[in-house]
Computed example of a mutant assay.
Amino acid sequence: MTLSRRHLLAASSLLAAPALLPASLRAEAAYPSRPIRLVVPFPGGGATDVTARVIAERLSQMLGQPMVVDNRPGAGGMLGSDMVAKSEPDGYTLLMCTIGTASINQFLYTKMPYAPKDLTSLALVNSLANVITVPANSPIKSFADLLKQAKEKPGDLSYGTPGNGTSGHMCGELLKHRTGTDIFHVPYRGSASVIPDLLGDRLNIAIDNLPPYLPHIQEGRLRALAVTSKARWFALPDVPSVAESGVEGFEAEAWFGVQAPSRTPKPIIERVSGLILEILKEPAALAKLRDIGSEPRPMGPAEFDAFIAREDTKWKDVVRVSGARLD
C-alpha cells in the first residue's frame, strides 16, 4: 500500500515537531538525560548526608540516571547552598537543604552569598530531634546535673555542634537563654568531627542531630541527657525531653528537604517532588529513615513553602532573643 503525498507531509511534520519546540521545552521533555547531582552542604556521615543518600538511591532508580551525592561543606551549609542557588536551573543540580540553610542562616548572618528566594522548594523529607549527649564516663549523669554545673561554673563547660547556624547550635543558644546558663560553643565541620572529640573527652557536651550519635548511645559509649523535641523521641524512648526536664515549652527539631535553583521549570519540579513523595510511601525507604532515628515528613512544594515560612517566624525570634550573630 502506498501513502499519498498528503499523508507523507503529515508524517514528516510530526517527526519534525520536537525540533520546532523551544530548547528549554525540549530539555524538559527529555529530562533527565544525564546524571543529576544532589549537593549536601555538610560533610559525610551526618544526618543530612544519610538522608540524601536514601533519597538519591531511589531517585536514581526511578529516573533512570545516576544521582551523585556531592558533599560541599562550609560556612554553616552556605557554601554548598550558594553553589546550587547559582547553578543552571535545569534540574541537574539539586540541594539537600536543612533547617539551617533554608531558614536560620538568613537571621544569623549579616551577609549571605545567596538569598532564600534564589532556591525553590521541591519536598520536605524528614525531621528529627537533636540530642544532648556526654561521654559515658562524664560526671554529668542527667540534664539536671548539666544545668547545675553550668550555673555553678559559668563558661567552664563547652558544647560542640556540627557548625555555626546548625540546629544544634541554635538549640544550644536557646537552651542557654531559657536556663540562664553560660556554656561555650565549639563549632565543628560536621558531626563526624564532633563525635571523636566527645568520645575522647576533649569536649564536655554535644548538641546535634540524633542519627550519628544513636549507635554510640545504644552501645554505651555516650550518654543521652535529653532530646530537644516537644516530647520523647521514638528512637530513644527512655530519654526525657528538655521540656520534660524542666524547661517548659522547649521544642526544636531539625528537618531536611530538597530544593532546586529558582526558575527551574515547573514540570521538572513537579516530577522530582512527586517521585520524592512516592519514595516516602515505600516501606523500605521509611525503614531506612526511621533506622537513623528520623521521622518521615512528606510535603510537596506549596506545603513545604508554608512550613518554611512558619519556621522563619520561629527562628527569627530565637536568634533575636539568644543574641547569636555571625558575620
Rank of each mutant, 00 (worst) to 15 (best):
P43Q: 10
V39Y: 05
I276C: 01
L210D: 11
I132V: 15
G172L: 03
V39C: 05
V134K: 02
K314G: 00
Y92H: 15
D291I: 00
L25F: 04
L174M: 14
V242A: 03
A231C: 03
D327I: 03
T101P: 00
N164F: 09
A144M: 01
T51K: 03
A243F: 10
N164K: 11
A260N: 09
M62R: 14
C171S: 14
E219F: 09
L157T: 08
A56I: 04
I207E: 01
R223P: 04
V68N: 07
V125G: 06
Q106Y: 03
V54M: 03
R34K: 14
M299D: 08
G220C: 06
L210C: 04
A226W: 09
K111M: 04
L15V: 11
G172Q: 07
R58E: 12
H216P: 01
G77R: 07
A16P: 01
G45R: 07
A75E: 15
E278H: 11
M83E: 15
I205A: 03
E219G: 00
A16F: 10
K153W: 01
L199E: 13
G76Y: 03
A17W: 15
S167W: 00
I140A: 02
L174F: 12
S103G: 02
P211S: 04
R271W: 01
Q149L: 13
A29Y: 08
P211M: 07
P261G: 06
L95Y: 09
L21R: 08
P73E: 09
E173Y: 11
G74Q: 11
D317R: 11
P89M: 07
A123F: 02
L63K: 05
L20A: 14
F143E: 01
L25W: 11
I195A: 06
